[in-house]
Design a protein around this nucleic acid. Sequence first.
DNA 1: CGAAAATTTGACATGACTCAACTGGAGTGG
DNA 2: CCACTCCAGTTGAGTCATGTCAAATTTTCG
Lengths: 196, 196
Amino acid sequence: MTDLTNIQANISHLSPISTEEMALFFELGLLRKFKKNALVLRQGEDISPFMFIKRGCLMTYHEDEAGFKHVIQFGVAMWWTGDLQSMQDNTLSYYGIKAISPTEVYSFDQARFETLVSAAPGFERYFRLLFQKSLINHQKRIIRNISFSAEQRYEAFVSTFPKLEQLVPQKYVASYLGITPEFLSKMKARFYRQKD
Amino acid sequence: MTDLTNIQANISHLSPISTEEMALFFELGLLRKFKKNALVLRQGEDISPFMFIKRGCLMTYHEDEAGFKHVIQFGVAMWWTGDLQSMQDNTLSYYGIKAISPTEVYSFDQARFETLVSAAPGFERYFRLLFQKSLINHQKRIIRNISFSAEQRYEAFVSTFPKLEQLVPQKYVASYLGITPEFLSKMKARFYRQKD
DNA sequence: CGAAAATTTGACATGACTCAACTGGAGTGG
DNA sequence: CCACTCCAGTTGAGTCATGTCAAATTTTCG
């Protein structure tokens, strides 16, 4: 039970959510569980949910024609992930999503998401504010990408998500930062050598 | 008058807006005009509006400690610009905004924006969808930043915003792409040399 | 334990940056 | 209408950050 009240508290932090609205959330959200390394969503799939992470860690990536995977997001507990575009328009998913650790999510497909926001004004406002906040973070990330060196980006990443550093394989961190795994490895070696 | 119905049509494209809601928009939105090269918002200012561009072109940038300006967005007619974070929390603006050409905007400070979204559910939904769409575009831009070469990013920019190429000084385009003006100049020279 | 994947390390290649010199318009004042 | 300045843009030489490829090592996991 504390899990659920945690979630309500977390969501209400952005926009007050009534008990009825919260009940609707749990009624519409499909609870799904994934093992470590499970594929949550295959890129190119025709149905693409938007998911609230109850527990665990998910990674969202896009695989280009050359077969390279580019990580665009790590999602942890109390965050949302999914392919928004595909969820909204029912187009084939542009991203793939993979479980980095054992994960549970509440999953909303387009119809259920639409029901949630139209039946519960608190959620409509919540998502407006959530996307607004997320947009701000994306803008900051773009600024880091265009103005920081790889080393500065790495430091920013570590200080923003200290725990992910342990959890996530380095090659995905490298991809998230926009550098090669080899270069990340060299950077870290240099970094720790300096500390002695 | 056609101007106004144009705006209503454009906004209603995302979320149906009633005539009363639209009237509220024009009542709350302060019409402001800027000359070419005018400073619309000074970075560090304590009041930071969110603006709907009626006509013209604005550029949003962040200036770092070393004095370098990093362009994060060009805004054209029917788009929104502003420092969302600063508008929402009333913190000092992180961005500066400058008019690239003569521009008119409808400007909403935090109180007026809040009034608009709480009094007009159509606008609450509109902004949820607007931010959702914008988020999608920002994610795509991040992918381009981490996976494309400078040349590929330039090509993507030109094909996405063909008109801006003419309008905006090159050095700002370079900053938007995350490269130096010199390098952009060399890239273009190479590009056009190949075409002959 | 053994195979496959992730990480590290090294030699070399290159895309993009720096700095400085040069060119060419766009304004401005005489 | 010219002369002057002042940016924006161009070009070139040299440098540095980061990438590529391949081999060695470590970790993961069946």
